[in-house]
Design a binder for these strands. Structure first.
Length: 429
RNA sequence: GUGCCCAUAGUGUAGCGGCAACACAAGAGUUUGUGGAACUCUUAUCACGGGUUCGAAUCCCGUUGGGCACCCCA
């Protein structure tokens, strides 16, 4: 034979960096988490809301903050053909608030309790439990400043995570004050660090100008040393913030939530004020699997009236990785299914109708009708661990019956087609 | 975005300048219509593009993707 012509092969495409496929074998975990979330949301009285992936760029610049890394360095933003500046959402809170203001959702329910779930996008280097496209589950309570809602957010989140069997959750909590006391505290910090600046690490030197609060969560040994002497938020809160924080801690204790106050906990998004918190689990010790806080000023920064609110974002990929690391199996497994095998063309054709009948009666049926030999089909049945296999050949077509085989015992029985649904249901119990 | 490590069959690995190999998985089959065992066969232009060389999976450069840390964050 002549030498084969070398074909020009089309390019084989790969995924975009940091944007993973969620493959069928992963789906037991995903469905497990998502369904648990839905059950919890239902119990805690949250409505589902979905907002688009694309938003006007300005929403995030104004809402999340132009100087935050998330907006400044990590956003997928571009100009559309029509000339609009848009961004793929890096987080879910600002879009929810936008929707709240745009559709006056306070009239639908006040406060409005909503949850969302979907992909978020941040252009940073992927690493453990961190992707460029990742999924967040959020709970938000908009339109009320009462401390009970801060605690309800935490309770819903913990309920979610506990329902997934994640153990030894730690809740780190802090308050970062409000408009009144935060500037004051910020100045105190600046004062404290002013003459110690030369001892700070390079990054902290920058943070000093950009966001002094962030000096507090630096892990450089020198900076850690300095931080021990630094003024603490709690000593500089206004009366209102102080009261609210105390109320929240009381409520938390009343509800048997174990927590760790962390005076150095500050968040990276500008919209937070007062309560901030993060949740950790030992199997993923260095990464928060959920975090949130109060954001009373977000609405105003995106052009609305004051809508005091509180919320949380739960990292789905992180939750799943924590479950895997802790060797927690997914709660939801694929249902057992009946296997249907046909022998010969005539039986194969007739079997489509029977399979459809079973399925429309709520019986999940698997098949590999494309395979010719019965042997190969039986192998498929074995592979999916079908409890029973229905065998249908030429002979059965004439008899109007189907062989029902119990895969464990190997016992077989002929069942008339009209009785099949009933018989299969009986055996599946 | 910066830095370091990595890329051979579906998966896990060997080969380290001279014939791409092993295990498992998957698919087809081992006399007619019966799975789990055994056996046979099949499955890779060594991620992609370029360079060095008589000769490249192997050495070099670039790209893409994966992993980890930093920054930051869910």
């Amino acid at each position: 034979m002549a030498k084969q012509q070398k074909k020009v092969k089309a390019k084989l495409f790969q995924n975009i960096r940091g944007m993973a496929d969620i493959l069928p074998k992963e789906q037991d975990w995903w469905r497990s988490v998502l369904r648990t979330g839905e059950t919890v949301a239902e119990l805690h009285d949250f409505y589902f809301i979905e907002t688009p992936i694309l938003e006007e760029l300005g929403l995030f610049e104004s809402g999340v903050g132009q100087d935050t890394d998330v907006v400044d360095k990590q956003m997928y933003s571009f100009k559309t053909k029509g000339g609009e500046n848009v961004a793929m959402r890096p987080e879910g809170t600002a879009p929810v608030m936008r929707s709240y203001l745009q559709h006056h959702l306070g009239y639908f329910s006040s406060p409005l309790k909503v949850y969302y779930c979907g992909p978020m996008f941040r252009q940073e280097r992927p690493q453990q439990a961190r992707y460029r496209q990742f999924h967040q589950w959020g709970f938000e309570i908009l339109g009320d400043s009462d401390s009970v809602y801060d605690v309800q957010i935490m309770l819903a989140t913990l309920d979610f995570l506990k329902s997934l069997k994640l153990k030894d959750l730690t809740l780190k909590i802090n308050t970062i004050g409000c408009r009144v006391c935060r500037p004051n505290y910020r100045n105190k910090l600046k004062e404290y660090y002013r003459y110690k600046k030369k001892n700070l690490c390079v990054d902290c030197d920058k943070r000093y100008e950009k966001n002094v609060l962030r000096l507090l969560d630096c892990r450089e040994p020198e900076c850690e040393k300095l931080k021990k002497e630094a003024p603490i938020v709690l000593d500089h809160l206004c009366a209102a913030c102080n009261n609210q924080f105390r109320t929240i801690l009381e409520l938390i204790e009343d509800n048997d939530i174990s927590y760790t106050p962390d005076p150095y906990l500050v968040r990276g998004l500008d919209y937070y004020n007062r309560t901030v918190f993060e949740i950790f689990t030992p199997s993923l010790p260095n990464l928060a699997i959920a975090s949130g806080g109060r954001y009373d000023y977000l609405s105003e920064s995106i052009g609305g009236r004051m809508v005091p609110s509180v919320g949380v974002a739960i990292g789905i990929e992180r939750v799943i990785e924590a479950m895997k690391a802790a060797q927690i199996p997914p709660k939801i497994k694929r249902k057992e299914r009946v296997f249907f095998a046909a022998i010969g063309d005539q039986a194969k054709k007739a079997s489509v109708k029977i399979i459809n009948m079973l399925r429309s009666n709520g019986i999940p049926v698997s098949e590999t009708l494309g395979k010719k030999s019965l042997r190969a089909q039986m192998k498929s049945a074995d592979k999916i661990k079908a409890p029973i296999t229905l065998i249908f050949g030429q002979k059965e077509v004439f008899e109007g019956a189907v062989i029902v085989r119990d895969m464990k015992s190997g016992a077989q029985e002929n069942v008339i087609t009209s009785k099949l649904v009933e018989e299969v249901k009986k055996r599946l119990k």
